[in-house]
């Protein structure tokens, strides 16, 4: 139709019509080349993931066969005797991560809300920058700092205080140690605060001012506005931020290995030593051989599975909230 363009000259003020011509040259070719490259990059992720899952599961298969379900339901870990039960490590991973979340989520949300809703402008920039900087500190530094500074200065006294005040509750029973689920959880919390607060801050920043005005116009105080307008709008995103923090806590290796106390049994008290899945892999891999190595790879497979389950669970929560 366009090719039979009528002379519009009169109407358009004397401008001659220009026929539509396809573009020639590199522009179009680059377009299709780009889409091929992008598709390859995208599928590469899937390939790597599949390769990881298959190769690790394959290595670990003899252990899974030999131990059966007791691999994850028993806490007997005696590589010398060929006993591989990792329940204590699963327990430790979950408990340290839970402690980290309990401490880190309120602090992170507090930081994020303060930076977006409360802080004067001149203070926002520096604090935002410092929080982002904390996220970039390597985890081994956190671990060493935890052992040499935080342990004598805070973790040990705090563990003693907890068990002396709340010791009648089994989860705080003594004898207390700073090298414990609690100690590892605290350092994990410090490590994930920057992640959760930085992401939550960005989420909260995207809440439209219209929402804030709507709440204010109904006579909301600032806190009521935040609770009624900002947090509901940002809820799904904030849950996502928390889940990314949890993902890091679940997989964190060095800092936990240094602080968790390396006890291969389950301790119900959080101020007693324990172990985590990532930490046991890191600590024992050097000396391990034979089935022991396969068992450690199997620990990795289970850790991977748990991480995926947690993430799927989080995604479901986010979806349900979005309704």
């Amino acid at each position: 139709m366009q090719s039979q363009a009528k002379p519009l000259g009169d109407i358009a003020g004397g401008i001659a019509p220009v026929p539509i011509e396809n573009r020639k040259g590199v522009g179009r070719r680059a377009d299709s080349l780009f889409s091929v490259v992008a598709a390859l990059s995208g599928s590469l992720v899937l390939l790597i993931l599949a390769f990881m899952v298959l190769s690790t599961t394959n290595t670990a298969l003899p252990i899974f066969r030999a131990e059966g379900i007791s691999f994850v339901t028993s806490s007997d870990w005696h590589p010398a005797n060929g006993d591989y039960g990792i329940l204590a490590f699963i327990y430790g991973t979950l408990v340290t991560s839970a402690i980290a979340l309990v401490i880190a989520v309120p602090i992170s949300l507090g930081i994020a809300i303060y930076l977006v809703e409360v802080a004067p402008r001149w203070i926002k920039g520096p604090i935002t920058y410092l929080v982002d900087l904390l996220a970039a500190v390597p985890s081994v530094v956190y671990g060493l700092w935890g052992v040499f500074v935080l342990l004598p200065l805070f973790l040990q006294p705090a563990a003693e205080l907890l068990s002396s005040v709340l010791g009648f509750i089994p989860i705080f029973a003594g004898p207390p140690s700073g090298l414990s689920y609690f100690g590892a959880g605290v350092v994990l919390a410090v490590m994930i605060v920057p992640i959760i607060s930085a992401l939550s801050r960005e989420i909260i920043q995207t809440v439209p001012d219209d929402d804030r005005y709507a709440a204010y116009a109904l006579g909301a105080t600032r806190w009521e506005m935040i609770r009624g307008a900002v947090l509901p709008r940002g809820r799904a995103g904030i849950v996502g931020a928390v889940m990314l923090g949890l993902g890091r806590a679940l997989g964190e290796t060095i800092a936990v290995a240094l602080l968790v106390g390396s006890a291969t049994t389950i301790n119900t008290s959080v101020v007693r030593p324990g172990y985590s899945m990532a930490a046991v892999i890191a600590n024992q891999f050097q000396e391990a051989s034979g089935d022991h190595i396969k068992a450690l790879v199997a620990v990795g497979v289970v850790l991977f599975a748990i991480t995926i389950i947690v993430n799927i669970g989080a995604r479901l929560i986010v979806w349900r909230m979005a309704d």
Partner: peptide, 8 residues
């Protein structure tokens, strides 16, 4: 307001 702004 100008744009409808119900809460989510």
């Amino acid at each position: 307001f100008q744009r409808p702004n119900p809460f989510p």
